[in-house]
Simulated scan of single mutants.
Amino acid sequence: MLKKTLITGFTAVSALALVACGAEAETEDAMTDDTMVAEEAAAPGTIPEVASGDETFSTLVAAVTAANLGETLSGEGPFTVFAPTNDAFGKLPEGTVETLTTTDTDTLTSILTYHVVEGAVDAATLTAAIEEAGEAGYTITTVGGGTLTATLVDGAVVLTDATGGTATVTATNVEASNGLIHVIDTVLMPG
């Protein structure tokens, strides 16, 4: 009788262990699936997708759409975008944004591509390049063919455009799947 009880107990324990192993494997599979879904959901989108997800850039997103640059900025890249906020566009003379997005899209395209640089240039790399360049500043060539001069002013990166206007970088290293976004407080002009 004792032998039968031990065998029955052993069988029950073995069965529970096998069920537990199977449940553990299912749990691990489910966790792997959930982790993969979470990682895919957490992975940043392209530069236009990231900008579209932030109301601060609604004017920029509308401008990119009007200039038909969404597909280009969704490309493989990598790109670094100095992204003006809605407040930055608000500093332009009244009616400028409307004119650019409706009747002067060639100028709009030139302005927007002036804010884009090839490669993913993070804040640390940019700051190091500015420090190495010295007081004259670091020259950045944009995908539009123009240049910006980057300097450090009171610890902040300041970009000077072709017209002598300046924009301060207010946030850095916003990640996208195809590059980085640095937020700026003024729209830069190519000349």
Results as ranks from 00 to 15, higher is better:
T127P: 02
T168Q: 14
T113C: 13
T151S: 13
I184Y: 00
T109Y: 11
T46W: 10
I130K: 02
V97K: 08
T35F: 14
T127R: 09
A83D: 09
A136P: 01
T8H: 08
L159S: 09
T101V: 13
L69P: 03
L92Y: 02
V13T: 12
G22Y: 12
V187D: 03
M36C: 01
T11A: 15
T168F: 10
A129I: 05
V97T: 14
F57D: 00
P44C: 11
E98L: 04
T99G: 11
F79T: 08
D122G: 06
A150E: 02
G9C: 11
T102N: 13
T27D: 04
T168N: 09
V174S: 12
V64T: 01
E28S: 13
A120N: 07
A120R: 10
H115M: 07
A120H: 13
V183D: 01
P78S: 10
T151I: 12
E55R: 12
E132K: 12
T109C: 09
E40C: 00
T139I: 07
T147L: 13
I47N: 04
S52H: 02
T127D: 01
T127C: 07
D33F: 06
S110A: 15
S74E: 12
N178S: 12
T59E: 08
V187R: 02
P190T: 10
T186P: 03
A120T: 06
L60T: 11
D154G: 04
G134V: 05
T5V: 07
T56Y: 04
V50F: 06
I140L: 12
A38C: 01
T151P: 03
V19D: 03
E175C: 09
A83N: 00
P48S: 06
F57R: 02
I47L: 15
E94C: 00
A51R: 01
D106A: 15
I184M: 00
A124K: 15
A25I: 11
A171G: 02
A128N: 11
I111Y: 00
T109W: 08
A66Y: 03
G155F: 06
A171R: 05
T85P: 02
Y114V: 03
A41T: 04
